[in-house]
Amino acid sequence: MAYKVQQVLWQEACDQLKTLRKAVYVLEWQLPETTEFDDLDSKAAHVLLFSDQDTPIATGRLTPSGELGRIAVLPGHRTLAVYKLLFAALLKHAELQNIKQIQLQSELASVKFHQAKGFKPVGKVFMEAGIPMQKMVCNRQNFDIPDVRHIH
């Protein structure tokens, strides 16, 4: 399947971004909608992936501080190819912005997985939407696909 990758601004594509993220986080994961959208949305770089029918199927964001998150891929499209395209686009933006370290928020269950991929825990465990999370960081050049089932 051929995909189209597009970097978008929140102000121009918020309807599409919200639809994807609501489908994954609010409806599927049952997270409160109030925790899904924040002030960083208007400042972050967003990527949309479109199917060959030009339907939005995935999104992710990169904040100005280098935090990857809000990775939302619709069921039926959760393949390694989709995740690789999504992360490649976000990492390309990080490179263009000279962001040297990539951060993510990992569920505690995935910390060891991320450590094996070169991520290091930073700070204390915190709660987000009732889920214990750990901030993790790695150098952009060493980035490898994280455990996408457990980041937000």
Rank of each mutant, 00 (worst) to 15 (best):
E33G: 10
M136E: 09
R61N: 06
Q97S: 14
Q30V: 07
K135P: 01
R149G: 15
V82N: 02
F126D: 05
Q141N: 04
H77A: 02
K120V: 07
K135W: 02
Q101C: 08
A23H: 09
K135H: 04
A89H: 03
F37R: 06
R21M: 09
I57Q: 01
G60N: 14
G66L: 12
E33S: 09
L31Q: 11
D147E: 13
L17Q: 13
L104I: 06
Q30D: 14
A88T: 15
H150V: 00
M127Y: 01
H77T: 09
F119W: 07
V47K: 04
Q115D: 06
L74H: 11
Q11M: 05
P75K: 04
P75E: 09
F37Q: 08
H150F: 07
Q103Y: 13
Q115S: 14
P56Q: 05
L104S: 11
R149D: 08
V111D: 00
A23W: 04
I151R: 07
P75M: 02
V8N: 12
A116Y: 11
K18F: 05
F143K: 13
E95P: 10
A89N: 04
A109L: 13
S65H: 00
R78S: 05
F143G: 12
I151G: 03
M127I: 06
I131T: 13
A81L: 01
L91N: 01
R61V: 03
H150I: 03
H93I: 11
T35A: 14
S51V: 14
T59Y: 07
M1P: 13
A94V: 06
T19L: 07
A116V: 04
A72H: 12
D39A: 14
C14G: 06
L86N: 01
D41W: 10
L31A: 15
M127L: 10
T79W: 01
R21A: 13
V82P: 01
A23G: 04
L104P: 05
E107V: 08
G118F: 00
K84N: 12
K43T: 15
N98W: 02
H150G: 00
L9S: 15
K100G: 01
G118H: 06
Q115G: 03
G66S: 04
K84G: 01
S110V: 06
Q101P: 00
L104V: 08
H77G: 02
L86I: 05
D144A: 09
V125T: 15
D52K: 02
E12K: 10
P121R: 02
G118E: 06
D39R: 10
Q7R: 14
L17C: 09
I102N: 08
D54Y: 05
M127T: 11
P121M: 00
F113K: 02
Y83A: 11
H152W: 00
H114S: 04
Q115N: 03
D15T: 02
T59Q: 06
V26M: 05
M1E: 10
K112C: 13
S65K: 09
